[in-house]
């Protein structure tokens, strides 16, 4: 499902003495099936963009096309529910949204709101608990009796259970330990590939953006200031510094090595694995010369 933001502006508390502009003329095209990262500092407007992606906020100016539904200011749309079913959002600290008596019921909440039958919702919940690496027993437990990491997984299952075509992730691994972080990010990537999802990742982490995304957009002071492939975005270090953003660690290290060798590697190394591979090949060639 394609998502296109056209000249989107947004202001909180419009027409009051406390009005605050959050977005200015944001243009962004997210093609179906792509993995789009949105990066920027706290307060750059990336969370506001995120809430537009399934019409939780409507632009004060401009429009958003989500699939074939257009969301515009002041226009009441009966199709918002259709949009919300197709666009699942995993909010930051999603475990805060758990409420039901059992994990099973909580996961079933989303799909059943959208008219999925009870049996089907149950089947999805059982599958998802397995997919997220939780033991079967948790299904009948209260979500509030689980550990923090398990609660996070249940909440994510609750969003996935709606079978969204677009998955929007807002810092989904904040507060997790390194192993948990990697497991969750790998899971989302696996789903992205296997189900052909369109994935939007809102993050502070340059490393995650470089590793997983095939497109990156940079938000700064409410504007979308840069968009392109990771190779394009990270080749412009000076520009990134203007937005107080850094290069991913692997590229920073690549630059150090290049400076020492006085030679350049053919591509930017987006991950540690890529760095090791490129470096090994380069050294091999050098030896053969």
């Amino acid at each position: 499902m394609d998502i296109t933001l056209q000249q989107v502006s947004y202001a909180y508390a419009k027409n009051t003495p406390f009005e605050k502009r959050a977005l200015y003329d944001v243009d962004l095209h997210i093609p179906s099936g792509s993995y789009q990262a949105i990066i920027g500092h706290t307060g750059s407007g990336k969370s506001t963009v995120l809430q537009h992606l399934n019409a939780l906020l409507k632009p004060t100016e401009g429009s958003i096309k989500i699939g074939d539904v257009e969301v515009k200011a002041e226009k009441k749309s009966k199709q918002l529910r259709k949009v919300r079913q197709k666009v699942g959002i995993v909010f930051q600290f999603p475990e805060h949204q758990l409420f039901d008596e059992t994990v099973l019921k909580d996961i079933m909440f989303g799909p059943m709101n959208f008219g999925v039958s009870e049996e089907e919702a149950k089947r999805r919940a059982i599958d998802l608990v397995k997919l997220l690496g939780l033991p079967d027993e948790v299904l009948e437990k209260s979500p509030f009796d689980l550990s923090g990491g398990q609660m996070r997984r249940v909440a994510i299952a609750g969003v996935l259970a709606m079978n969204p075509e677009v998955l929007v992730l807002d810092e989904p691994t904040a507060g997790l330990d390194p192993r948990g972080r990697k497991e969750i990010m790998d899971l989302f990537y696996h789903l992205h590939k296997e189900k052909g999802l369109t994935t939007v990742l809102v993050t502070h982490s340059m490393e995650d953006a470089a590793r997983y995304a095939d497109r990156i957009a940079i938000m700064h002071d409410g504007k979308c200031v840069l968009a392109g492939t990771p190779q394009e975005i990270f080749s412009d270090e000076v520009r990134l510094m203007d937005y107080r953003l850094e290069l991913p660690q692997s590229i920073k290290f690549q630059k150090k090595v290049e400076q020492m060798m006085e030679k350049k590697l053919p591509v930017l190394c987006l991950t540690e694995e890529m760095l090791a591979e490129e470096l090994a090949q380069f050294l091999k060639k050098e030896r053969e010369l």
Partner: peptide, 16 residues
């Protein structure tokens, strides 16, 4: 803020 956040999260899960 918290109320707003949770409300939006449940709306995104189809609660009305």
């Amino acid at each position: 803020d918290e109320t707003d956040k949770i409300m939006k999260a449940q709306m995104a899960r189809g609660s009305d």
